[in-house]
């Protein structure tokens, strides 16, 4: 075998074996690489009470209650199968509103109650001018948020 061909095979072999190794590592740590859990995960997986997690879902319409005096806010995060009631005290991001995808970080009270210490808005991959969005909504085309 020519040295060139030999080097080519060595490099290909190295890359393949490293990719395999990394693939196994990433699979093993799959759970830790998730940035947030969904409300249904709270039902299916075993979480302890008072465990600190991040929970991602959609703000359920008509669920937001502001208590302006105490700066407290209550709302429900849903993934269409399970609802979680959230208590939060603090500043909300600009994009926070009903039907918005958000991520809350905080402590579990039980499978459907949660004390949040921070709220992040999750932005979706749709970009369009306001007029187009209005036109789409006028036609009854729902934009998934």
């Amino acid at each position: 075998m020519k040295p060139k061909t030999q080097r080519l095979w060595i490099i290909l072999f190295c890359i393949l074996s490293l990719a395999c190794a990394l693939g196994f590592i990433l699979r093993a740590f799959q759970e830790n690489l998730l940035f947030f859990y969904t409300p249904s995960d709270l039902l299916n997986k075993n979480f302890q009470e008072n465990q600190r997690i991040r929970l991602g879902g959609i703000v359920k319409p008509l669920s937001v209650k502001l208590h302006a005096k105490e700066h407290k806010i209550e709302f429900t995060v849903t993934d269409e199968t399970h609802d979680v009631h959230i208590n939060y005290k603090g500043i909300l991001p600009d994009l926070f509103r009903e039907r918005q995808g958000i991520i809350v970080e905080g402590y579990l009270i039980d499978k459907s109650h949660f004390n949040a210490i921070s709220v992040l808005a999750k932005h979706d991959e749709n970009y369009m001018p306001p007029q187009v969005e209005k036109a789409l909504r006028g036609k009854g085309l729902h934009i998934k948020i």
């Binding site: 990433l26 799959q30 690489l33 998730l34 940035f35 947030f36 859990y37 969904t38 991602g56 991520i103 992040l120 999750k122 932005h123 979706d124 991959e125 749709n126 970009y127």
Partner: peptide, 14 residues
């Protein structure tokens, strides 16, 4: 795609 992230998925190469 593989994990849940705060970052939004691709808008163009889909």
């Amino acid at each position: 795609v593989w994990w849940t992230t705060l970052h939004q998925p691709a808008s163009i190469t889909r």
